[in-house]
Design a binder for these strands. Structure first.
Lengths: 187, 187
DNA sequence: GATTAGATAGACCGATCTGTCTATTTAATC
DNA sequence: GATTAAATAGACAGATCGGTCTATCTAATC
């Protein structure tokens, strides 16, 4: 079934949470922007936390789809895909609505490691790492896991430097570092 | 003068904001923990935002002092200091109260780039980068700025992977990657 | 001992928060 | 046209939010 109202609430919440934060975004604001009645929200979600979880799960799904598609479009052969990660990041960073990584932001607001919201964020990072590891294996590198770990760190570091410090060259700097790692891994 | 009450309020706020977040920490809670009257806070700070700024400035000062001291203790010669960055991170990550980077967390909650709180966070990251660049120059590397950029990205990535994904090996993984970068930079 | 500055407790404000409830309306199915 | 389920507006609750104000008290200085 997947009620249209429910879908629309998730999309609206996703947008507002991403742009303005979780605690800073009230239920009333979400209802106002979505144009939906209060009880419609509480019929579909038990609480605000449940709505946050739904929004994060949608974000994970949408972001990883976009990311994998973009990496594999820019990198048309297996050995071009690891560097293409950073071209994809550069695209993301240039989006007008870029507000950092929603999962880093979520972990910042829900700090308890056993909070389900923190858990979904951890899972997202692990799925991204898994994808990068797969790319590294497809590229026939000697030590794919280590290279993937390194590139993951560079990618996350780039997100932070772009968002927190406002460094517009963060993605290309990370790409340079990644190329050094890759070169060392082939030798 | 630097009133004792004022100092104590900043320290208490720093602790609570770091552990529980900024929006999630109310004025009442800070007053309760600090054991200070409401008007004492508002005599020293115009608003909650001003208190947040004071707490972040103190955190920047304390953290960078600790970081530089630790790096230079572990790395007793100039060429050992860049790798020592990641040993210092490992120490930090193992602290019982570790809750990620307070400035990344602050940027997550105050997303507008022109928000003073976001500005203080950007400044903190730039000061850390500046320090790493100084270390790279002292180590007589061919391209100290590039190496510093790379190591900064690895360090920030490690913070994210440790805090968001719970990876307890994040610091040592970052150190491995950094050593590859450093090796490539000496050849 | 009088003066002064800083800190106190606590009432109070208006706004906002998440979540509940009711009574009504809409719209699709039979 | 009757039935049924979903969505509506809006009142309401109880708590908490940041911030102001007052009246009292403490402690140091002169």
């Amino acid at each position: 079934m997947a009620s249209k109202k429910r879908e629309h609430l998730i999309d609206t919440a996703l947008e507002l949470f991403y742009q303005n934060g979780f605690h800073a975004t009230g239920i009333d604001r979400i209802l106002e922007v979505a144009g939906v009645a209060r009880m419609t929200l509480y019929n579909h979600f038990k609480s605000k936390d449940e709505l946050i979880l739904a929004a994060l799960r949608r974000r994970d799904e949408k972001f990883r789809n976009w990311f994998m598609r973009t990496v594999e479009t820019i990198g048309d052969t297996p050995d071009k895909r690891l560097p293409a990660i950073f071209d994809a990041l550069a695209e993301w960073f240039n989006e007008k609505q870029f507000s950092g990584c929603m999962f880093i932001n979520a972990s910042a607001e829900f700090s308890a490691p056993d909070d389900p919201i923190h858990g979904v964020s951890a899972e997202h990072k692990n799925l991204i790492l898994k994808y990068i590891t797969k790319l590294a294996k497809d590229a026939d590198l000697a030590n794919p896991e280590d290279v993937a770990d390194s590139l993951m760190l560079l990618a996350e570091g780039a997100i932070v430097m772009r968002y927190v410090a406002g460094d517009e060259q963060a993605a290309s700097r990370a790409k340079l570092a990644a190329e050094k790692i890759l070169l060392a891994s082939k030798a």
